[in-house]
């Protein structure tokens, strides 16, 4: 039966075309990334005709609608960094310890329940978490700590921590899980307790994975928008206390973009702010990638 008389040559050519097509499609992610970069810069760079890069990044005052306007995003950057740092102080221990619980000490029955909980945490829409922080946590903080506003650095950090815990936890868990059993057994066989084995063998061996997890968690926190938009308080100041309101970069962009005149200075300044934000997350992600590739996890032995 010579019905499908594909000659070897034409079949080879078809295969090649298919292969190349898939290759081109797989470039879509990089192409998008490139487009994002190009368009952010295109719309952001014009602001530097008005202010110098230095004044933009280190300028103390953000009064974009004043006459004349001030485009200094230093307090926005500090706002972003402060919520990121404070939230990691909460999310790192909780995320890593939960990962250890899941990977090491939880029984199979319990893990079956806790893992979906972490996944559901990751799936909660940020606007819902922001809403929760606004209507429940803010009044609570105001009452308990007697602060002027419950919408502040602390509240935002708390909500952001909740959002980055799943990232930190699930990537750390993978890293801990892939530490070879042989290493664990070797340690236990020497009379180390389970905790000593975790502290001295498992954690060091999975350190690069956990570091990656932490960086990605922080990257998630610095880029998160709705939460900081709704609960950070929105004041473009350099915070002195945990209960000061702040205005992280994403909040500023989201809040002002709708009102900024199209292709006006304010509009360009917001795009330039997005460039700074983008560069921050790019830095975080490249660092995470570098660490996870440079310090590949070690196997039991490399025979």
């Amino acid at each position: 039966m010579a019905t499908s008389s594909h000659s070897g040559k034409s079949r080879y050519r078809t295969e090649k075309i298919i292969r190349i097509t898939f290759f081109c499609i797989s470039l879509a992610s990089i192409a998008t990334l490139a487009l994002i970069t190009i368009f952010l810069f295109m719309e952001g760079l014009p602001i530097f005709k008005e202010v110098s890069v230095k004044d933009f990044v280190f300028g103390q005052y953000w009064y974009p609608t004043d006459e004349p306007p001030d485009f200094g995003i230093f307090s926005l950057i500090v706002g972003s960094l402060s919520v990121t740092v404070v939230s990691s102080l909460i999310s790192i221990p909780l995320g890593v310890l939960t990962a250890l619980y899941l990977a090491e000490t939880a029984s199979a029955g319990i893990r079956q329940w806790v893992k979906p909980i972490v996944e559901l945490m990751a799936a909660l829409p940020s606007v819902v978490i922001g809403f929760f922080g606004m209507v429940l946590i803010a009044p609570f903080l105001q009452e308990v700590f007697g602060v002027a506003t419950g919408l502040n650095l602390f509240n935002a950090s708390l909500m952001l921590a909740f959002m980055s815990i799943p990232t930190i936890c699930s990537i750390s868990e993978d890293a801990i899980f892939s530490v070879p059993t042989e290493l664990k057994e070797a340690s236990l066989a020497l009379g180390a307790t389970h905790w000593e084995t975790i502290a001295r063998v498992i954690l060091p061996a999975s350190l690069s994975g956990i570091t990656t997890a932490i960086i990605l968690g922080m990257s998630r926190a610095i880029g998160e928008t709705m939460v900081v938009l709704m609960v950070a308080g929105g004041a473009a100041i350099v915070p002195i206390s945990l209960f000061d309101p702040v205005r992280p970069m994403p909040a500023s962009i989201a809040a002002e973009m709708a009102e900024a005149p199209f292709r006006g200075d304010h509009y360009h300044a917001l795009f330039a702010t997005a460039v700074v934000l983008f560069l921050f997350t790019l830095l975080f992600n490249l660092a995470a990638d570098y660490i996870s590739h440079k310090y590949k996890q070690v196997g039991a032995s490399t025979l």
Partner: peptide
């Protein structure tokens, strides 16, 4: 003490 099938030194 135990010695395993594959050598498993700690890193």
């Amino acid at each position: 003490g135990m010695v395993f099938q594959k050598p498993n030194p700690f890193p």
